[in-house]
Design a protein around this nucleic acid. Structure first.
Lengths: 101, 101
DNA sequence: TTATATTTGCCAATATGTGACAAGTCAATA
DNA sequence: TATTGACTTGTCACATATTGGCAAATATAA
């Protein structure tokens, strides 16, 4: 499993009965690019993710989460210490959060 | 917190009473590069990580885990959905593992 | 077929990462 | 305070990766 972000975008786009070209136009991007993003062949910019959330009427965090998850998955996918590494990284995130408060 | 990998390498190197230049030589790399890797200014290649494990007599997984964790942290560090995204990615990893079996 | 939607392949432009080296700081000590 | 040795910093050319854009290929439907 992979490309949770692209899959979600495609589903949302279809729910809104939009064509690739229509969504692409609103996002001010090439239709082909968007096609690639939906199929996970290319990565969207964060800015694009936020625009998508607005257009497709979902809370930004929902999309950002999937978009980030895909990137994490990409980093660890071929590693057999993937789960351990994620636990270690999780602790780092928790600690850095504490420092901010 | 960050750069767990580099910190570990530095500690191991010092435990082995090696100079940067000595370890760098065994790794066949520039002393300055290694310095940057230890301080987290540059990323080591996986190949280098494995060589380090051999030289510093630790199991490769130990270093690979920290090295990966740093990379994950880099991806998520500025995102407030970091923890959620990691949970989502974790599920993907678990599922892809199952498929292999 | 024809029309429309999507995908694919390619390329030039841009951005990012890497290796190598020289010069810099810093600490110890003669 | 000069010298030495360890480490750090800055820079630059080069390689590698990513991106945007277009055109052609491939569906899909009428």
């Amino acid at each position: 499993m992979n490309n949770q972000f692209g899959n979600k975008i495609r589903i949302l786009r279809e729910e809104h009965k939009m064509l690739l070209r229509q969504l692409a136009s609103l996002l001010d991007m090439d239709t082909a690019q968007l096609s690639k993003i939906e199929r996970g062949e290319r990565n969207a910019k964060k800015e694009t993710v936020l625009k998508m959330a607005k257009i497709l009427k979902v809370v930004p965090d929902e999309l950002v989460t999937l978009w980030l998850a895909d990137q994490i998955y990409d980093v660890v996918k071929d590693e057999n210490t993937a789960l351990k590494a994620m636990m270690v990284a999780k602790e780092s995130v928790k600690h850095s959060k504490k420092e901010k408060e």
